[in-house]
Amino acid sequence: MTSSSRNPILITASRLLAPFIQLFALYVIFHGHFGPGGGFQGGALLAASILMLRLSVGAERSELKFRKSWGTPVGALGAMIFAGTGLLTLLLGGRFLEYHFLPLPDLSRAELHSTGILLIEVGVSLAVMAVLVAIYDDIMEGPGGD
C-alpha cells in the first residue's frame, strides 16, 4: 500500500469511528443471548473495524491494534476456547458440550447452559475476527503489496 495519498479526513474519521464499532461489536457478542447477535456477527464487526484501520491509516500504524503475526495464533486460541469448553464438560463427567457440568456454583441448569453458550461465543468471535484479518494480511503480503 502506498502512503502517498493519505487523506487526513479519512484518517481522523476512521480513528474516531473504530472504537465505537468495537464497542458495538462487544455489545453484539455479549448481548447475543437477549437480542439479535452472537459470536459470528460480533467477530465480523471486530474484523471490520480493524480492516478499516488497516485501509485508512496504513498497515504499520494499525499494527499497534492488531499485529500481523497475531492472526493465526488468536484464531487457534478461539477454536481452543470452544473445544476446551467441550473437553472440560467431558472431563467433569458429562458429554461433549453438555454445559450443565461446568464447575460454577450457585447456578441453575439453564443458567449454566447460558454461561456455556457465552464462553463458546467468545471463542467463535475471536476465531472469526482473527481469521478474517489474517486473510486480508496474507493477501496484502507479497511483492506487490505493502
Partner: peptide, 15 residues
Amino acid sequence: LTAIVVSVATTGVGF
C-alpha cells in the same frame, strides 16, 4: 449464519 462466514473464508482461500 455459519454458512455466510464460511463462504467469506472460502472466498478468501479462492483469492
